[in-house]
Design a protein around this nucleic acid. Structure first.
Lengths: 205, 205
DNA sequence: TGGGGACCTATACCAAAGTATAGGTGCGCC
DNA sequence: GGCGCACCTATACTTTGGTATAGGTCCCCA
């Protein structure tokens, strides 16, 4: 029977989640309303399998609270939970050794699955946060690019010169410049570097 | 009892994984050695809960095979498996609707956990692929960059001109050019675009 | 006390990038 | 046929990027 400590300063959120985990899956769930009370509570408890910390909670101070919890109780798994789920925060949390990142946008069922997953020793990272809005990738400005312009953009993402692009595509350098100019205009960026960055961030190439 | 179809052209890999899944967790595992035989096999089977496709396998043709499988059997969950696990491929696969990406670098236990996770309806994405080797990120060439050079690189990743960088850093454009030149040399790239791409891929900014 | 490295500036030069204008072909569509 | 569009080429030009060389200050460390 897994032992869970859930720390969140938002009473309603904390209690409802705790109740759900207890009734639906029989987890033993203790609660706390701040990082300090959570750490204090762990001192008087049996081994806690999983500590769930709200990212916005007194005492957290960003991800410092994560470090404090991990160094105080290295044996416990620690997952971060956040309502204002930000991709960078999620990445940083995982990089700092969190065992999971639980956005509050998860469904209750998914949260239980994620918690179970973490309890098996795996690290849970919600896919939606790995690559931001993959649906929007080819949409928007990228949609109006012609075929040649897409090919040109692909080369831009390698960082090669116009001359090299001309060789690869078998056209003159002048034409490449034309395509590049059109790409920049359609994407609304100022130069080839920005175009490459934009395409890279959208995971196009 | 979950029904799994595992398709991989590498006989040894396929059979050992299948045997492991069968004996350890009692999954019913069928196998195939190519995409076409896998799709054909599904036609004659009871509902398959999970289809696991090797990324490098006859008939896959990159991620086209994933699309084929998903459109042929929309009800089945589809996970991709790959030995030459590449972050971009993993992201692209998930963006195209894969329910999981299983690098062969996973331990057997982790793979089972991941498969169970996918079978619950969640989407599994190995954390290590979300931000590629965060440990190695600042390593290598990036380590020898001086503070100013890092600041310069950060600006390069926005795609701004030398003149603008000069304004932001409060130095002359000539000095910026110097820093840029040093950055390019230390990173071993030919121009600012490649430097920006490299840093972006390493998730430095 | 004398390097050495990070940092800054300057002049000069050439290559590359980007803009502007003008024109040509082929294709589909009304 | 005429129109628009994607595509190609060309000349001419300005701006930016990148290299080379030379020199300066500051600070740390042997």
């Amino acid at each position: 029977m897994p032992n869970i400590l859930l720390a969140d300063d938002h009473d309603l959120v904390r209690d409802t989640i705790a109740a759900y985990l207890e009734t639906v899956d029989g987890f033993a769930v203790a609660t706390a309303s701040s990082l300090d009370t959570a750490l204090a509570a762990m001192a008087g408890m049996d081994a806690v399998d999983l500590l769930i910390l709200d990212y916005n909670m007194p005492g957290m101070n960003g991800l410092d609270g994560l470090d404090r919890a991990r160094s105080a109780y290295p044996a416990a798994k620690v997952a971060l939970m956040s309502g204002v789920a930000n991709r960078d925060v999620a990445n940083a949390a995982m990089a700092r050794g969190a065992h999971g990142f639980l956005p509050k946008s998860l469904t209750a069922a998914s949260m239980v699955n994620a918690i179970k997953f973490v309890l098996t020793g795996e690290r849970y990272f919600p896919f939606g946060f790995a690559s931001p809005e993959p649906a929007a990738a080819r949409s928007g400005a990228f949609a109006n690019l012609s075929e040649r312009e897409m090919q040109t953009l692909e080369q831009l993402c390698i960082g090669v010169s116009n001359k090299e692009i001309a060789q690869v595509l078998g056209i003159s350098e002048v034409t490449v410049k034309l395509h590049v100019k059109n790409v920049l205009a359609k994407l609304g960026v100022a130069n080839r570097t920005q175009a490459a960055i934009l395409a890279k961030e959208r995971q196009l190439f």
